[in-house]
Amino acid sequence: MEKAIIALAAAMAIAVTGLATAWAQSRIGSAGAGAVAEKPEVGGTIIILMAIPETMVILGFVVAIMIILGI
């Protein structure tokens, strides 16, 4: 039972942050696509902006690992 709760907690840590990242990236992505259409030279910046919300899921991943490994 305890194992299942640990697994569920780790999954939640990833799932919630994953959803949050996806939502942020969808907003940045659509705005970025518009910006690139008008100014193709900002393409590089948009790619970097797209990578910024990934911190959330990375932190979620770290938390999940900590939960599983019991750190």
Binding site: E54, T55, I58, L59, F61, V62
Partner: peptide, 12 residues
């Protein structure tokens, strides 16, 4: 602190 933890992406 958040910046440092962000380097976990190297591992991920």
């Amino acid at each position: 602190i958040g910046n440092i933890l962000s380097y976990a992406r190297i591992m991920a």
